[in-house]
Design a binder for these strands. Structure first.
Lengths: 266, 266
DNA sequence: CGCCGACTTGACACCAATCAAGATAAGTGG
DNA sequence: CCACTTATCTTGATTGGTGTCAAGTCGGCG
């Protein structure tokens, strides 16, 4: 919505998506977007080998007990970098028009808050109760300067987030609302924390607000997109935060279909 | 493009945009996006200090004499990483629907072709005659493992591109076609190679095809957006690749205005 | 001069943003 | 436990924007 802008260039971070269980929904820790590497040890996978000890020295565990808490705001001085231990965070920014845009949902093991010119480019808020490892950026930089391996994992994380951003650009740029929603649901399906294969039930970790701002549409459009997918027997709504998947192949087929009418042959 | 603003602490890099002179337009080497640092030595700014020698050892200068040549395609094995010496390149990807989407325009000094799991995630094509420094990824990785400084500049480049991608996400997600176009033009204005302050003339380095695919619209929508800006006395079209800027403040005001009708107050 | 590509304009239909209102669920206090 | 309030989600009606199809213009090049 609205809000204004921000304009800072960018910052932040990255990637995947996860979502936030609203208060009503059960607490969910799953990641929206699947990654190939194991995330069982949030810090662990960031640091391989003995660098981990170095990192732990400067890490501080901080807790945010409720949803909707601000971790940092766009434009403020960026002293810290964070790695999620538990919970979920949304990275957002406001366009000059005031519209909020959610760039990514981050889950356990994800890193965010990389400074851009000394300040944060994005805003970061909890989406549920969350525990974070906090690193002073200066200290982290010093360690990285001595530990090429650590830098490489850092680089890999950044590269992954970058790819996610590019993927999201393509999604935002060219699909209809229900196609974007279908893509989003397909991403969620890959998360075993959210998708119960045996019953074909999928938990939706984000509310309609965040969903709409992430997919570049309004709440109403999101609701209508759900309605349309239901009409076409692809899904069945159980509650606002849970659906039953009726036809995965149908959902997959959607994203291959022509965006609107015919395929442009440029 | 986008701006490249300035804001990276260190160095910079990457991403943004430049454009391609179409065959009809005069050859343009300027960067779409202005950078603060001198680019006389494209490789130079990637490497500070003696790492430059190491890099030059494994660098090979390759030339692509014409526009529209493919440097690499998405999905192919990624053996090389490139740094632009001269010219312009567009980084694109195709959605499952078949639509092309241009993720970024890259100019001198920009780095691209970072592999993702051993293959290229995007396609890269020349937008005009171009000279590139080519690095074997394996070799570059070996050097980086020994040179933390080099890794840092690499990281900074990646971080900059990432921020650009995030900025583009916000643009794509929420503006109308003429607002997106206005933003694009404002970015171009920052490039002195393209904008003649004294006459208020701006050269458009990209054709309507690339423009539309970069801003997430059709050629027709792009043409109509130009027409609308002209109706509102903000610009005047001189040719399809050159315009006169009549009201910069008006253009700036556009991006702050409400996207469509009223400001949503969520 | 005629072809051909790039660009522009028009007509039309459809989608989605908006505005408004209702339905459902959650939280609060008695 | 129920009444009330509030937030969230859904549905409906309207309108404007933009994709699509089609036609026309402009400019370069043979």
């Amino acid at each position: 919505m609205m809000r204004r802008s921000s304009r800072l260039e960018d910052n932040s971070e990255s990637a995947p998506a996860e979502a936030a269980p609203s208060k009503s929904s059960p607490k969910i820790r799953g990641r929206l977007i699947e990654k190939t590497d194991d995330r069982s040890l949030p810090i662990g996978n960031l640091l391989t080998g003995h660098e981990q000890d170095e990192l732990r020295r400067i890490a501080k565990l901080v807790e945010y007990p409720r949803a909707g808490m601000t971790i940092f705001s766009a434009g403020s001085d960026a002293d810290f970098v964070y790695v999620i231990d538990e919970g979920m965070v949304r990275i957002s920014r406001h366009a000059e028009s005031g519209q909020r845009h959610i760039l990514a949902f981050m889950g356990p093991g994800d890193l965010f808050g990389v400074p851009d010119g000394g300040i944060y480019a994005n805003t970061s808020e909890t989406v549920c109760a969350t525990k974070l490892y906090r690193f002073r950026w200066k200290s982290l930089r010093d360690i990285m300067a001595k530990e090429p391996e650590l830098q490489l994992s850092f680089l890999a994380k950044l590269a992954f987030d970058f790819r996610q951003a590019q993927r999201q650009m393509v999604i935002l740029g060219q699909q209809t609302t229900y196609q974007r929603l279908a893509l989003f649901l397909l991403d969620l399906l890959r998360n075993s924390q959210l998708f119960d294969h045996s019953r074909s039930r999928l938990k939706l970790p984000v509310n309609r607000f965040d969903l709409a701002d992430y997919l570049g549409m309004t709440r109403e459009a999101a609701a209508r997109a759900f309605a349309r997918l239901e009409e076409e027997k692809l899904i069945r709504r159980i509650g606002s935060h849970e659906i039953e998947i009726l036809n995965i192949r149908g959902l997959n087929h959607l994203k291959r279909g022509r965006p609107r009418k015919t395929l442009r042959t440029r």
